[in-house]
Write a protein that binds this DNA or RNA. Sequence first.
DNA 1: TCTGGGGTCCTAGGACCC
DNA 2: TCTGGGGTCCTAGGACCC
Length: 417
Amino acid sequence: MFALIDGNSFYCSCERAFDPTLRNKPIAVLSNNDGCAIARTNEAKDLGLKMGEPWHLASKRPELKPMIWMSSNYALYGDMSRRMYEVLCEFAPRVDPYSIDEMFLDFEGLPCDTVAFAARIRDRVRQVAKIPTCVGLGPTKTIAKLANKLAKHDRSGPGVCDLNDPAERIRRYADIPLNEVWGIGPATAAKLARRGIDSVAAFIRMPLDETRDLLTVVGARTHAELRGIVCFPFSVAPQTRKSIAVTRSLGRPVMTWVEMEQAVASYVTRAAEKLRRHGLHVTAMQVFIRTNEFNADPKYSNQSTFEIEPTADTMALIADALRAARQIWRDGFRYAKAGVVLLDLKEPGDLPEEMFPSRDPDRSARLMAAMDAVNLRYGRRTVTPATAGVQQGWSMRRQRLSPRYTTHFDEMLNVRA
DNA sequence: TCTGGGGTCCTAGGACCC
DNA sequence: TCTGGGGTCCTAGGACCC
């Protein structure tokens, strides 16, 4: 049996955990660059704020006047997620984090009332990690996800929904639209709707071979899971990462190569830090730049993907990335976004020994270790490659940022008593 | 002036091989 | 009028997730 626990309006709840004046208020947390709403409290949903609504439009709507808008503070959310994880580990032998705010728990063979147990976990997370949650229970991950959603929709309910009983499940399935199901997105829902299938009940009545023909193995797995057949078991070993991306909208249009060079170099710097934190080397890279997709600016978009000598060295990666970026750069455009993706990540042990390395690997490793250590101790970007620039006029907007309560001493909460 | 970022998996189709 | 069959590998793009 699976349990899925999921933070309610997670980012907003994290903000509330440290600022009680935000309770019962309509809040939205904005995406990077203060672009659009990516988390809303129930109060915000009730005012009619939609997921993904651009802030510059939403903030002009009169009915959204009472909204409190906040920039996203990922340092805080990551930390709160860790706290939640630690609490869950007290209860279940296996906890499988699925996203920053969702974790699957292994409830197999629990000798107790699982619904009551789930309620206790919820209380504890609320008390210790200060995050309100809902829990869904089911024989498969897909059903547990669905149960979680039902628990969330029932705002005045107990916060726990159990879909283990097959009869109960069939009853509920009749009223659940397909877009509520994990793994069924807009394209699949539309495909099924064209065949007159618009509820979970109708979907699971579809014959398996027909499902597979229409939706390939992906849809067939979801189909089976909804019938109670496990296709997504608990992961045995944590799989290693396959790619690392750092892509950003620029805070204002960039028109000079000097600025683009800085942006790309600083994205590479960040990506390389992540790479080393995972203890990996990279053997291929992608760089892209593009103009604004929404406005009337002349459009240009290009990317370059290429193989590189395996490395985790920031300087080497910057050199490669800038060479590629220079090739796709065209003068005369207003660039709005750029990004760097590290592909084909490898464990260093899985790489063949370089016969004629272009760098001294030991020297590079020592330099990177020193850089990471300084930045860990004194804060990100204390030491940074010169190409990444100091004046970053193009960097993203975050005008409504909350303090980094949990990760910076000088921003910690002060309590006077 | 302002519309996110970071992932995974699967498939179709081309290139290539014998 | 006729033009094999079977296999692998790679990549671009689609779809989905939060």
